[in-house]
Amino acid sequence: MTKRVLFSFQLKKQLGITLLFAAAASLLSAGAVLLYEEQHVLALADARAQSPALFAALGVGGSASLLQHLGALLYGFLLPVLGMVLGAVLAARLMAAQVETGEMAYWLALPQRRAAHALSQWGVLMACLAIFTVVPALVAAVAAMVFKPGALQVPWFAQLNLGLLGLYLASGSLGMMLSCGMDERRRARRLALLLSGLLLVIGLAGRVREVPGFVRWLSFYSLFDVPALTAGRMEGMLLILPGLAAVFLLAGMRWFAARDLPL
């Protein structure tokens, strides 16, 4: 009862910012579908030929199909960055901000374990990230149906978004873990952005041919292999992302349950 009531309350509180991010991502998605025209595809191919390392890092590959085009424009860099920022912002709001304002005192005055509260807040974060994944994907799918009928391979597109959700789960849970250990929202947000950003940069660098191969495995962003997913290959490595999310969550719950709270 306690968890259900708190979950729906917190979800409503975070819905505004989630929908704002989802709207921005939806605009990008719809725009990317509309850009799937021969002249734009050729222009992109020209640009890629000029600086292959940069485009490889940003995950911009070929645009042989609409799915590959979307993968090249959005899923290699833009959407992972937006999701990373949203995850860090929400995680800081859901835990550290409550300690900072003293609001946490009310939640911990209820007969529930600290870990249960952290789990419930993580659930809210995951629900928000799921909304953020699904809304732009639906917008892109609808735009493709209307403007490029039959061009989008829907099952592979769904698989690509499932992979993206896995990536959000991992980066959001990393932010949540840090937020569980912090007393100030800004500090939690900054640290989550810094760490996720660093991992993203490592992941991007790992895509460049000139960089040693082991580098890409230093970051979980490398597990989200856009060219493979847009080519219709289900990457088994993707299953590691929810596993990582679970590890971050457990570490965060443990940290939160064991530490002193300045309330």
Partner: peptide, 27 residues
């Protein structure tokens, strides 16, 4: 054992805010 004890306890903190954009009644 805090989670067990809180069944019996009523707590009035000295300085704690309510969540933003929430009325007293809602909370």
């Amino acid at each position: 054992q805090r989670h067990v004890l809180m069944q019996y306890v009523g707590y009035v903190p000295r300085d704690a805010r309510l969540p933003a954009r929430t009325t007293g009644d809602q909370f």
